[in-house]
Deep mutational scan, measured.
Amino acid sequence: TFEVERIVRKKIVHGNTSYLVKWKNYSSKDNTWETEDDIRTKYGDLVDDFEK
């Protein structure tokens, strides 16, 4: 199971928000862009903290 360590960046393309996710126990080269809906479902607190 993958676990988010932190959110690195945010991008908005054509009105759709995605977050660059750093995965726990993986290197930064393994970071992936994930949709806001996918990340918010399980890691809403991390998204809220990133947006502060």
Rank of each mutant, 00 (worst) to 15 (best):
T1V: 14
I39D: 01
S27E: 10
R40W: 04
T41G: 11
T41N: 11
D45C: 08
V13W: 09
D45M: 10
N25V: 05
V21A: 00
V13R: 10
S18N: 06
R40P: 02
D48N: 12
W23L: 02
S27R: 06
D49G: 07
S28Q: 10
I12K: 07
T35G: 06
N25P: 05
K52N: 10
K10P: 01
D30T: 08
V13A: 08
L20C: 11
K29C: 13
H14S: 11
W33I: 00
S27Q: 11
I7C: 15
N31G: 05
N31A: 10
I7A: 01
S27W: 06
K24L: 09
D49V: 10
T41E: 13
E36N: 03
V4P: 13
S18K: 12
F2K: 15
V4K: 00
E3R: 05
E36L: 08
N25L: 06
G44R: 12
F50L: 02
N25G: 15
E51R: 03
Y26P: 09
S28V: 09
S18I: 15
D38G: 06
L46A: 06
G15I: 03
G15T: 03
V47S: 02
L20M: 07
R9E: 10
K22N: 02
D48H: 08
T32C: 03
D37I: 10
R9I: 06
D45L: 11
K29N: 11
E34P: 01
Y26M: 15
N16H: 12
R40F: 04
E36F: 07
S28P: 09
V4D: 01
R40M: 09
K24P: 02
W23G: 01
Y26S: 13
L20F: 09
N31Q: 08
Y19P: 00
N25D: 09
R6T: 08
K52F: 08
Y26A: 13
S27L: 10
G15D: 04
D37K: 13
W23E: 00
K24I: 05
V8P: 04
V47N: 01
L46D: 03
L20I: 01
Y43I: 04
E36G: 08
R6F: 14
W23C: 02
S28W: 15
L46E: 04
G15W: 03
I12R: 07
E34Y: 10
I7L: 07
W23V: 00
T35P: 12
K42P: 03
E34L: 15
D48G: 06
I12T: 11
S27N: 08
V47F: 06
K29I: 09
D37E: 14
R40G: 04
L20K: 02
D38M: 13
D38A: 14
E36V: 06
N16E: 14
T1F: 14
H14R: 11
